[in-house]
Write a protein that binds this DNA or RNA. Sequence first.
DNA 1: TCTATTTTTGCAAATTTGTCGCAATTTTGA
DNA 2: TCAAAATTGCGACAAATTTGCAAAAATAGA
Lengths: 139, 139
Amino acid sequence: MFDLFKSLLKAEGYSLTAARKAVFAALQHREPQTMHNIVAACRGQADRASVYRTIQLFESLGVVQRLQIGWKYKLELSDKFSSHHHHLSCTKCGRTIAIDEDPALEKRMRLLAKTNGFLPQDHQLEIRGLCSLCKAGKS
Amino acid sequence: MFDLFKSLLKAEGYSLTAARKAVFAALQHREPQTMHNIVAACRGQADRASVYRTIQLFESLGVVQRLQIGWKYKLELSDKFSSHHHHLSCTKCGRTIAIDEDPALEKRMRLLAKTNGFLPQDHQLEIRGLCSLCKAGKS
DNA sequence: TCTATTTTTGCAAATTTGTCGCAATTTTGA
DNA sequence: TCAAAATTGCGACAAATTTGCAAAAATAGA
């Protein structure tokens, strides 16, 4: 997985620097991270501007993906590195549940893309609603 | 449709003001709008700060939904008012195609929510990739 | 309708986010 | 090991979003 990362960079002629390693490391969570999180996690290892630049690079290389979750966007490793791009987010308490890919959904999405002449690279699905706790009024 | 909007506000004890009407009006498009668009469309009818506050209110009432499309977020009326929350966005040229809801996808999503004890209110799906033009290298 | 109360607004200032230029540092390749 | 190219940190900026507050508008009750 780290090797895949390394080779993706190399393949496009980018070097594997400390800052890039730090940002990549900051993304190793099941839950998507805010930019704020990532900048904080990289403190001492990469400047804020570098983090932004790195995220842009990663996005263009398809290493990370930007998701809208609730009110702010978050970042997570893309399909190539992990596979939970489906999220349930609670409109009341803000809790987020990351769920694994659903083969039936995947298939349907590929079809949708195809009928529109689209070559799919990545995707995101967010379902907003009330989580089981809020639904029951237990907040 | 405007009546539904009116009653949603009333039901929660909010009044139907000129500013809120202006923001609601600015959202009547098939394509999702940027905050910038909306602020501009409301010029003379609502201050920027009010637009932001209104969008937050609308979001909490489930009137609008925030989507991540490509690099920036956009806003569109939620499920209750319109039904295209599926988007194909081209990672190369930035073009966006709004596609109508797919019943099979809908069904699958409801199931996903249900198995997680979730009460779904709204959703968004974005598929990123290359549009037919970029795929063919015609930009 | 008139008035007191509550809600909403506009404006300006403050924060937060994200970007840019450039000199200094690191990496790469010969 | 050295020169060229890529990357970084550090402000300074610029854009986006939030906040406080007094004025204006909407609401409910007499």
